[in-house]
Simulated assay, not measured.
Amino acid sequence: MSNTVSRFTRGFTVLAAAAAVAVTGCANMSETQRDSAKGAGIGAAAGVVLGGLTGGSKGAAQGAVLGAGAGALGGYIWSTRMQEQKKQMEAATAGTGIGVSQTADNRLKLEVPADAGFATGRSQLSPTLVGVLSQFSTTLQQNQATHVTIIGHTDSSGSDAINNPLSFDRANATRDYLVGRGVSATRITTDGRGSREPVADNGTPQGRAMNRRVEIYVAEPASTAAR
């Protein structure tokens, strides 16, 4: 069994490397096509390993086909629409303290810190956040294929009985504003994490301010690229 594992692990490594080289060399591919090809190559390599472990060479071949399909269709894409939305939101948030970035899994992230979003213990949107969300709603209308996830966070001050519902209230208040601006509620998922996921030290005022935040993620499923 160990020889089989070793043989197919080496096969995975070779196929994954070959897929990466092939995709990198396709200079004429669009970013979407490169992401799909990359996913297909990695999926095929994984399929070879899993199929080989369960069914020898025949299983490896079948696993490669199934893995390629799963790799091509899974995950998110960073399309030209997503790149344009990022540029527009960078312009809209300039000077506000709201961060705009592309995540490792190809989502657009807006991180709204306390001083740009909500007063302590409150879920009412600040004027700064209202202005940003107004532009954000426009960019969402321009790319109807995306889904939005909004997650509220608090610092550790107070009890979970206060912090947990407050984090939900902040996420829901953000969603409600976007819906009021014409974004379909079916495109938006909200969650509240209370104080469970700090990004800074709750022992300092500066750290607590960083932990009181709302994170907004925009994702375009890779499956929409083929439509």
Rank of each mutant, 00 (worst) to 15 (best):
M89N: 00
S156C: 08
P198K: 03
V21S: 09
A145D: 14
A18H: 06
T120W: 14
T186E: 09
E84G: 14
A20L: 00
S167F: 05
T93W: 02
I162W: 05
A104Y: 13
T174F: 02
I216K: 04
A116K: 04
V65M: 03
L129P: 11
G121A: 06
A185T: 14
S157W: 13
G117H: 08
N106M: 11
S156F: 08
I77G: 15
V179T: 13
T224G: 05
T204I: 09
M29R: 15
G95D: 00
A161D: 12
L50H: 10
L53R: 06
A116E: 02
G25Q: 05
V48L: 12
L73D: 07
S137M: 11
L178H: 10
A161F: 05
G99R: 11
S123F: 03
P113A: 04
D160C: 02
R10L: 14
R187E: 09
C26V: 06
S126K: 01
R81M: 12
L178P: 13
Q141D: 07
A171K: 10
F12S: 04
L73C: 13
Q141E: 04
I188F: 14
R81C: 13
E220L: 14
V5G: 08
V23W: 00
L110V: 02
T189S: 15
G56M: 02
G52E: 02
M89H: 01
S2Y: 05
A226W: 13
G71S: 02
R7E: 13
E215D: 12
Q206E: 09
A200V: 06
G158E: 05
K38E: 00
Q135E: 10
D176T: 05
R10N: 03
G11K: 05
A68W: 00
A161G: 02
L125R: 15
V112M: 04
Y76P: 15
Q144V: 08
S156K: 11
A40Y: 06
S184T: 13
N106R: 12
T149R: 14
V14A: 15
D105I: 10
V14W: 15
G69S: 02
S195Y: 10
K58C: 06
D160M: 07
G203L: 10
N143V: 12
V218G: 12
D105H: 07
V112L: 04
